[in-house]
């Protein structure tokens, strides 16, 4: 059963995700236009990176109202795996499937580089079997990736073991070095780094494979 990749106007990592899934991992995938609402036959959903709706107003603020996202909320609430990468993570927070918000990087720079991450939790299916504190390398490419949330939300994330990844060296000022989080039930993962850009050995690393492989459990 395929993975659905949502395409918004302004998405630009949708094809990379499809290549990583089909070309590198042999996982069938198909595109879902943001106006679609039918998720039948899909085992998992990816919200890819990019600049949906030109990042107008705030990153993800307009995309959040796309018809397909109501279907994605239903899919997630039924336990379906949903992965939000970069702009996809921003959309998940605007949508309320994940708490907090992604704000302008502390130093204002758009940062595009490979970066070391620590696996902070192996609670969920996304990272089951991995050792906590294992280091992996994934590329980041964002101008607004500074994760922010209220203190009580941060404590909830910590208490629920919902922080999936932390930056080894914080590039953007994210609170508690957060690079990726999961929802309490663990089926929704949002992260700023791009696993799809680290699936083909020719690109210098394949650490992204573990995350995309987990889409099918």
């Amino acid at each position: 059963m395929p993975v659905g990749i949502v395409v918004f106007p302004g998405s630009n990592c949708d094809r990379d995700v499809r290549w990583a899934l089909e070309g590198c991992l042999g996982i069938p995938a198909r595109y879902l236009w943001h106006e679609d609402q039918d998720l039948s036959g899909l085992d998992a959903i990816v919200l890819p990176g990019g600049f949906s709706y030109g990042d107008y107003l705030r990153c993800g603020a307009i995309a959040r109202f796309s018809p397909i996202l109501q279907a994605v909320v239903g899919f997630a609430n039924c336990g379906g795996p949903v992965l939000g990468i970069c702009n996809g993570f921003q959309i998940l927070t605007e949508l309320g499937l994940l708490p907090g918000a992604l704000t302008r990087n502390k130093d204002l720079h758009f940062i595009c580089e490979p970066i070391a991450l620590n696996i902070s939790s192996n609670r969920t299916a996304w990272l089951k079997g991995r050792d906590v504190n294992d280091e992996i390398f994934l590329p980041i490419a964002h101008g607004e990736g500074r994760y922010q949330c209220a203190d009580d939300t941060l404590h909830e994330l910590q208490d629920n073991d919902s922080i999936a990844f932390r930056y080894v060296t914080n590039p953007n000022g994210s609170i508690d070095d957060i690079a990726g989080i999961t929802n309490p039930t663990g089926n929704v993962l949002g992260l700023m780094p791009h696993p799809e850009r680290a699936c083909d050995p020719i690109l210098g690393g394949i650490d992204g494979q573990l995350i995309l492989s987990a889409l099918l459990g």
Binding site: K106, Q148, G173
Partner: peptide, 13 residues
Amino acid sequence: NLRPSVLDPAGEA
């Protein structure tokens, strides 16, 4: 406006 507790790097710049 950004809430007072949220850093505004563009404002700082």
